[in-house]
Design a protein around this nucleic acid. Structure first.
Lengths: 210, 210
DNA sequence: TCTATATTTGACCAAACGGTTAAACTAATA
DNA sequence: TATTAGTTTAACCGTTTGGTCAAATATAGA
């Protein structure tokens, strides 16, 4: 049921047990920090079996990474292939998609950010491979600007800000809990209402009249 | 001259040569990815000397981390101790401080984000130790809300968004270069004008009338 | 110069790492 | 039951890692 979001629980093959374990460890520790032995323990199997199914650490990692990345292209695409694109709906779809997926995989951004710095070309390759097309988003935003629906600025910059607003609170979450949201109920509220507040915040920034 | 921003070049003691080398390597590779040998090579000295001056990898790392963190509290404080705080100036100071410091230390956020996940309590401890007081910012923002100068929302959320907008483009920089800013001149322009665009963007979002 | 102290080095170590291998186990088929 | 192919394991390997140490070198004071 949750397969799209990274848990392969339903199909209890050995491969999927390993992938689930590897995902947990890689997300917690990053590539360099992760240990094959720890992944094996997490999966409850012998370490050699990891190499039997996925030749090397690098290949196991790439498997996780590929899978995770496909999940970062959320419910956005449907909004992009309409014949009449509605910017407001598009923005809402981006926010909603990111917020949902980040709630289920809060470690994903750190993972991705770590990899962006380890090997940016590889990450770019995986994005293209996952059929994620930021250009579609850019042109849609540009069109809305030309139509006078939103304020004019570099559409790429606008997209970065939109995604950044979705992702950043999750990336810094452990710190926020200790510095700003000492009462954990507050943080829960913040997260729960984020779709709405964020859309309001962003739509004011880009000059959407509601 | 650059000491505040992390380069200890002026004081050419062996300690500082090591610290400069270590900073480079740690920022590039993260804690787990960094190798003591690589740091020694970068500093042009014997590896054992690292342990002579800084007992262990962990201690060397903490030194860098402490130092770096102090630098993340930029030109903001002066704006906070005025008797009449001007929100617009405050926001400009935050943006300006972050943009400046990130231009000189673009690897810092990845470094910090990595550590936030490795050991959030330690990071929180270092922030307090560096006399960084987010509470001051929060109350200043809250005051501006009560005075009707900016839109009402959770001031903590607003602060997170502000910092996120500054930091996120830098965190994803290597990827942006490959996906959105294939022409590197474009990226330069984006970065160069960022203080202005970002302030305009943010001030619209929070409802500042200019 | 002699001496004592601080600095620097090459050689070394135990532990941890990713990865391999041969043998053992399991299950299906004939 | 005998055979075969796929799966799982304990033991092992070569390399790399952070860290140590005794010896060598530089430095400074008497």
């Amino acid at each position: 049921m949750d397969k799209l979001y990274g848990a392969n629980n339903q199909d209890n093959t050995q491969e999927n047990i390993i992938l689930d374990a590897a995902r947990k460890v890689f997300m917690r520790k990053g590539f360099d920090g992760a240990r094959m032995q720890e992944i094996a323990n997490e999966a409850g199997i012998n370490k050699a079996l990891l190499h039997y199914y996925f030749r090397s650490k690098e290949q196991l990692f790439q498997n996780i990474f590929r899978q995770s990345f496909r999940n970062l292209w959320p419910t956005i695409e449907p909004e992009l292939v309409r014949e009449k694109i509605d910017v407001r709906l598009l923005i809402k779809a981006v926010i909603s998609g990111y917020v949902d997926i980040l709630e289920k995989m809060p470690y994903l951004p750190n993972f991705v950010i770590g990899e962006i710095n380890r090997d940016p070309e590889k990450v770019a390759g995986l994005i293209k491979e996952a059929a994620i097309k930021p250009d579609l988003l850019i042109t849609a935003i540009k069109k809305a600007m030309d139509d006078g629906l939103i304020i004019k600025m570099d559409p790429r910059e606008m997209l970065i800000y939109l995604i950044g607003l979705c992702v950043f609170p999750v990336v810094t979450r452990p710190l926020l809990g200790q510095l700003l949201y000492k009462n954990s109920d507050d943080y829960q509220k913040f997260i729960a209402n984020r779709k709405e507040t964020l859309y309001n915040f962003f739509s004011r920034a880009v000059g959407i009249k509601n």
